[in-house]
Nucleic acid binder design. Structure first.
Lengths: 141, 141
DNA sequence: ATGTATGCAAAACATTTGCACCTGG
DNA sequence: CCAGGTGCAAATGTTTTGCATACAT
């Protein structure tokens, strides 16, 4: 269980940390803001402060347990790190997030970095669009 | 001159707007935060408020005169819009920004959006790395 | 016990807004 | 002249921090 991951990361196994991990694991959308996690904690009756949520998420990020993403908008979004690199497509209308991976894009990025004399360390690619999900409220098609 | 662009955008030709356009045009790095523009204004003796800088940049963005970029870090970065879409490579060490364009990446993005049932509207791709510029203070190589 | 974690309130930032005054056309 | 623009200060929204208390080992 998650107890292992926490210990492995050198973090004490505390209630806030376990609860936050649980929420990230159970999440349907898998991409949550600190606020969203905080609200879920409140809803399940936990007395955990928003500051703690931010502190825990920052520690999780440092430990490689979660990734912090920056989509348009002002809040960071957090997702559980599952070791498979991927990029994101976000629906402008309903906020739905999909993940994708394309080796050709990865390759071309490495090539672009090389051409410009950069030692590539990381990259962030987000595609914005309108999804055609039936649940999407502003769906065009 | 820039007077044209302002009028075309339906914006009165005021001193703050002209000065801000000038700074964006003259900028060596071409990618500036609102703060950086504000400081340049102060340095050149202009009495322009930071709020005005933000307001003007937001209007310029709406008019298509500038683009607002979100790199890692909390401040937005603004660049003069020159009509040629491109993505960015940013040096983690010295903050230098390079632009690039790769049709293969563009194509694959469209394909990824299509595969996931999204009507692509926009995208943001930033590559982070260490540059090997001789002026880069933390240069490794 | 003892070093860490947490909660709360306050601080820190980046950015936006309200409002009285100024300015461009 | 007058709608629109600007400066300043105050508000906002997100994230971080200080500090006294509580908890895991």
């Amino acid at each position: 269980m998650e107890t292992q991951n926490l210990k492995k990361a050198g973090l004490k196994v505390t209630l806030p940390r376990m609860k936050i991990l649980e929420i990230l694991e159970r999440s349907e959308t898998r991409h949550l803001t600190a606020e969203a996690i905080y609200r879920e904690l409140l809803d399940s009756g936990e007395e955990i402060g928003l500051a703690t949520v931010y502190r825990v998420l920052t520690q999780f990020e440092a430990a490689g347990l979660v990734s912090r993403l920056h989509f348009e908008g002002n809040q960071a979004v957090f997702e559980l790190e599952r070791g498979r690199h991927h990029d994101h497509i976000v629906c402008n209308e309903c906020g739905r997030v999909e993940e994708f991976f394309d080796e050709t894009i990865e390759q071309r990025q490495r090539e672009m970095a090389r051409e410009h004399g950069f030692q590539i360390k990381d990259h962030a690619l987000v595609i914005y669009g309108d999804c055609m999900d039936e649940s999407c409220p502003h769906r065009v098609a």
